[in-house]
Design a protein around this nucleic acid. Structure first.
Lengths: 347, 347
DNA sequence: CAGGATGACGCAAACGCTTGAGCTGTCCAC
DNA sequence: GTGGACAGCTCAAGCGTTTGCGTCATCCTG
């Protein structure tokens, strides 16, 4: 910076003000400074600047399982807006519960970020408390961390849509496949989607077939396993709602291997509308993941800059995407055509 | 830090030395300092520290298309080792050529990172030059940026394996589906895999069917489109090598829709062995992506710490994974059984 | 017991920037 | 013609560390 100042013939104070767009510099001087900085190919030292201002200029993003479509998309959305706002994005990828614990134990963002974006992690009370002690703006994308700002969907409502679709097709015995993390515990999403599943059944006057609500580790293999379990029930369901597309796809694999026709003998609905769902013609519930990340990113920028977020709770909509894996059941009542009875097209 | 010094009754110089593990501090004092820092829940300011040492403590990772399986996996591998080595990972996600150009134009890592990891981007001469001017260690994962250290595979050899497999099955007319970026240009991978394809054909004494080498934008849709093109040739190939699994999957979709039995009438091989390949029973060439990221990360740590890398060029192996999308052709020669002639089981 | 080594620590000068306070010259109103 | 307002700068303190150098015991050697 001294070089630039010398080249232009002003003090470093003026250079600093010019570069940061502060008032107190004539337009003419500012121009000369900008040009000199450019030609000397000078950039301010974030370290020195941060030392004075107390800001780091970067935000941390906490994201589990980056190779899952959902997480990567949300990250991409957030990255875009944060970068445009001039922030550095420092990535904290927690691949398992061990790393997750370590993150909250050591809080490696202290003094290193101006804000924290949490993607798709349902935080426990204790974790929220720890973040609170951090004194940093925290916002959620695809999750709602405590009462912090967040952009997410209504999982319960989304799940209910999926299940209602099955009910409307005439299914009466509908199972659900839930997922657990590597410690075998159900995360928040799983609980909320279960709630939606239950609500939809209850509202339809159907009883909840507890034996047809099964759990397995998240992923294709888990979904496959869980479907195996369902197929071995005394009376298997005629339709299944899977917590996520990837899980549903595992279920489809089992069904294919077991020779159970889909949707002939079994309907399957997923959740998320990932590219795989489209590819495999899976009925699912769509949500805009990229946008959740982007909106959450915007909120974080706002929180960092102004200390608060004007609209701190954005709930994006979900849409049922009917595809080829759902149809009316071919139960004792025989197969029903498109004109078939039931509640196919309810009021 | 002053607080810690006061609490222990030493100078900040001593605290600094103790915290950084420098000699010149008695074990006893060091212990007291560590404990005091812990209980005061103190962490050094990276800004202040960086200002004097000139190091940022972070490395930048340049990655395109984070939601593609390959890129996310490599990133995860690199993240893990970089984090363990104590670095912050700052993410530079370039989603398109515009952002890519902007990155190399503005070089937003100046003064902000101790090193740069490039994932799966084949850098142009000009880009390499720009990075060179940066004066930073640069290493590649899944790509070999100039003569910089890198962990990657031999794409040419891998592609040749795929094509040889088809040749060995008896195919004589083998097409290839290549991919372009959003500007319609073939990246390095594409060129190398094409070279492998050509080499394998040449070595088998087969001529290269230029009309059966088609290009389309990367992705499922591109693959689908390209396969459509192949099917509309005067004499379509009996087998296709697709540059990547995702592309092969698009090709499979078209074949399914066109009613062309796979592998009955058309064999398809992909590249990468992504989870989708396994799911769809796609024959492909496997590589360890996570490991490429991890090794490259290790190299970068080494380069940053010691100024050089001892083994700067790691080429990981590839393995052909035969699955259900490849079989002997059912050409004019009729379908051939497992005992069929040709070069099914060569030397 | 003198003298030199050695070890443990304190001092203070950077590191490169930001920003409030002070200074100077112009311009305008009266 | 003065005084004041104001724009445009300069000055320098201070941000929180690191680290070379100096100081002071303590210990060992002969």
């Amino acid at each position: 910076m001294a070089d630039v100042a010398r080249a232009v013939g002003v003090s470093t104070g003026t250079v600093s003000r010019a570069l940061r767009g502060r008032p107190g510099v004539s337009e003419e001087t500012r121009g000369r400074i900008l040009r000199a900085a450019e030609s000397l190919d000078y950039v301010v030292s974030p370290a020195a600047s941060g030392l004075v201002t107390g800001r780091t200029g970067s935000v941390a993003v906490l994201v589990p399982f980056i190779s899952r479509w959902f997480h990567a998309r949300a990250l991409a959305g957030a990255h875009r807006v944060l970068r445009r706002a001039g922030f550095e994005i420092v990535l904290h990828h927690v691949e398992g519960s061990a790393e997750r614990h370590e993150f909250f134990e050591t809080l490696p963002v202290r003094r290193r970020a101006d804000g924290l974006l949490v993607i798709a992690l349902s935080l426990a009370e204790e974790e929220l408390r720890r973040l609170g002690a951090l004194g940093l703006p925290v916002v959620g994308a695809g999750t709602e961390p405590g009462d912090r700002p967040a952009a997410a969907i209504d999982d319960t409502a989304g799940a209910a849509k999926a299940v209602r679709h099955l009910v409307n097709l005439g299914h009466r015995r509908i199972g659900m496949i839930r997922s657990t993390d590597d410690e075998g515990v159900h995360q928040g999403v799983s609980r909320r989607r279960l709630a939606g599943y239950r609500a939809a059944l209850t509202e339809a006057g159907l009883e909840i077939p507890d034996d047809a609500v099964v759990s397995a580790p998240w992923g294709i293999d888990g979904g496959a396993r869980a479907m195996g379990e369902l197929l071995s029930l005394r009376t298997p369901p005629t339709a299944v709602f899977a917590e996520a597309d990837e899980v549903a796809i595992g279920a489809l694999r089992t069904l294919r291997r077991a020779g159970v026709p889909v949707p002939g003998r079994m309907s399957v609905v997923g959740f998320d509308d990932s590219p795989m769902a489209e590819l495999l013609d899976l009925t699912t519930v769509a949500q805009s993941v990229y946008e959740q990340g982007a909106i959450a990113g915007r909120m974080l920028v706002e929180a960092v800059r102004h200390g608060g977020v004007r609209e701190p709770r954005v709930r994006l909509g979900t849409t049922l995407v009917p595809r080829g894996t759902t149809a009316a059941p071919s139960g004792p009542g025989g197969s029903r055509g498109p004109a078939g009875g039931g509640r196919e097209q309810p009021g």
